[in-house]
Each structure stands twice: as C-alpha cells, then as structure tokens.
Design a protein around this nucleic acid. Sequence first.
DNA 1: CAAAAGATTGTAATTAATTACTATCTTCCA
DNA 2: TGGAAGATAGTAATTAATTACAATCTTTTG
Lengths: 207, 207
Amino acid sequence: MKTTTTIKNLPAEQRRAVTVEAVIELAAEKNPASITTAEIAERMQLTQGALFRHFPNKDALWQSVMEWVTAQLLGRIDKVIATTGSPLEALELMFAAHIDFVVKHPGAPRMMFAELQRPDSTAAKAIAQTMLRHYSDRVGKLLAKGMGEGIIDPDLDVAAASVMFIGMVQGLVMQSMIAGDIAVMLGNAKPLFALYARGIKQRNHER
Amino acid sequence: MKTTTTIKNLPAEQRRAVTVEAVIELAAEKNPASITTAEIAERMQLTQGALFRHFPNKDALWQSVMEWVTAQLLGRIDKVIATTGSPLEALELMFAAHIDFVVKHPGAPRMMFAELQRPDSTAAKAIAQTMLRHYSDRVGKLLAKGMGEGIIDPDLDVAAASVMFIGMVQGLVMQSMIAGDIAVMLGNAKPLFALYARGIKQRNHER
DNA sequence: CAAAAGATTGTAATTAATTACTATCTTCCA
DNA sequence: TGGAAGATAGTAATTAATTACAATCTTTTG
C-alpha cells in the first residue's frame, strides 16, 4: 500500500496547483511578502530548485496564486447571485460566501492586500486590482437593482455603500488578526450585515 | 548658506525621530515587510551602518515606529473626543481625524496591518494590538454614551458597530490602493460616515 | 508485448546579490 | 579636546535562480 503523505513526480499542472495551495497556506501564517521559495518547497516536501521547473520565476507563481484567488472568490459569489432573487438577500448570501471563503483560506485576503501594496506594476498586482473592481461592480449592481425594486433607499450613495461592503470584510479580517483567531469572523458576520442592511434599506414614509 | 536638504550630525533623539519618519514614508510606497535598513539609510542620506548607532536592531526601530503611530493616532482622536459633546458628532470627527491622519501618513495603516500579520510575538506586534484595542474601546464608549442619550439605537450590537467603524477606514485604504491615489479617501469619507450614522441612529417611534 | 528512446520531474550543489549587523577609523562640535 | 555621530569596510546568513545529473514516466517501435 502507500497512503502517501508525500507524492512525487506529479504531472506539471497538478504540481502547479499544489504549489499555489501551499502558498495560500503559508500566507495564512505569515506576511505573504516574506514567503520564500525555500519555505514553499519545504511545505511541499520538495527541493527549492524544483519549483522553478514549473514556474519561470517567483512572480509567475504569485500571478498563479492571484488567479486562483480570483477564480475562487468570484466563482462562489457569482453562483450565489445567480441563484437568488432578492438583491438584499443576494447581498447577504454574497457576504456570507465571502466570509466562508476567507475562513477556509485566511491567506487569500492577505495575499490580496500584499499585492495591492506593491509599488511596481506586476501582473499579479493587476489581477488583484481587476478582481476587486469586479467585486465592487457586483455589489453596485445589486444595490442598483434593490433601489429599482424599492427595497433600498433611492438616495443611497452606491459608491460609499460598496466601499463599506468591502470594508466590512476587511474589518472582520482585522478583528481576527487582533484576536489571533480566524473563527471570530463567523460570530460577528451576521450582526454586521444586519447593521449594514439597516443603513441601506428603504424606510417607510408614513408620518 | 545651506538651506539644508541634508542635515548631518543630528543629536541622537532627533535622529531617531527622523528615522521613524523615514520608515513611515517608505511604508507608503511599498510593503513594510520589504523595507530594508539600506533603503531607510538611503532615504535619510545616511550610511546603513549608522542606523545601528541609534537602534540596537531592526526590531527596536520597528517598535519605535509603532509607538509613533500609536501616539499620533490615539492622540488626535482623544483630543477630538475631549472637545466634543455629542457622541455621534464625536464619532464623525474621530472618523475624520483618522482619515486625515491616514491621508497625511499612508504608511501608518500599512505598518499596522503588516505588524498584525507577523506570526511571532514581537514587541511591535503587541503595540499594534493594544493600540487597536484602545481604538475599539473609544468607539464602544461613544456608542454606549449615545445609547444612553437616546441618540443611538438601544438594540445596536456595539461589537459589530465597532468592527464596522474600523472596517470603514480599512475599506477606504483598500479603495485608495486600487485607485493608486490616496486622495480618493477624502471624497468618500463623508457619505460613508453618513451611511454608518444611518445604521446606528435611534429611529422615531411614531406610527 | 517489451525494450529502447525520449520527455518530464526532481535532486543536490552552486551562483551572485542582498540581508541585518559589526568592528574600526574619521569627523564634527560644544 | 573628548565624546558623540557618521563613514568605511567588513561579516555570516539568506535570497531567487541556475547548473549538471538522476529518477521516473510516456511514447515509439521491432
């Protein structure tokens, strides 16, 4: 038999996938900017040089990581939006899906933030930027739809409401980093969205 | 004459202060975790080795930086709180003061975030954590006071409202990083707080 | 079907550059 | 003039990337 803690001679595509996962894992434990190729290799039970058989350089690896994060997050979110009628409910499920993803992969938001901080204009950074733009678009569209349906306050500042939506996630990430415990996000997610909903909802005009 | 682009032979205390400022400046331009002592020295027109005449090691320097950020931010905020009667108005001015500080020193929030991400428990990280706890306390106290005065919804989840307050700042920082322009924060600050206020305010009970 | 030929994946060692930090000499100025 | 501040020139360790070589998988072909 061979229950295989370590798998060697993986086909290239598979090895690349495993490498990306290893980076996400490491990003959960330390500042992504400080992750070395040696650490990645060690985590995968591989020699450092072997990494460069699958990625021409470190930047290319980081680009793959950002593509993975983008596909994962936008994929989950779009699935939720597609299967939900009410825009307000969609926003709530979208928020929950995002939190769920971040709890499962705490390294993902850290990678995002680290990439956005880079001064140069690398491919990885560009991916992170477009991803967030798409994310913001999704929120904006749902808000606009809700305004059309009379559920959301017609005087709402959509840009501000989008910033606040992303800020909520970021605030939870921050809180979990202070607490040193990722799970605290789950407990605060629901009341947080309730507060958000209270701010954007249309009010009764009876007086 | 000598209009002093470069000032040499500064007294130790002054040199330390200038060094901290240089780090904050660099942190605005790149990931704080990637800042090297050589870069800091270059920015100050000093040789790299000279830095270690004023700081025993890099960690000590980073600790000083975090102490500076703490003193600056909490200082500004406490001044605002002390000179404002209404808790809701105090929250708004506190938010404005925070944004103003971040716009003037974009490196500050990045240093905070980078410190919180560290896996080890350094002195600098501890300072960052306590700072955020104090910050959260200030918000919580103001919210509680507002609830007592009947201005803020008595059923409000104070913890969630605190997370959202910090999240707003973080969201604006994120937005400015996408845009690559720090000043966008100023334009979105006011509508953002208005949305926040709408979520936490006490409602009229006439019906 | 089996063995040779080729391609793929991985190892171990080494590279030049960069890192934080130090020892020693020089300059400044109170 | 003597102590503080900076310059100069180092150190050992770590970094991403490259090398020559070996193991292993896949394809071809007699």
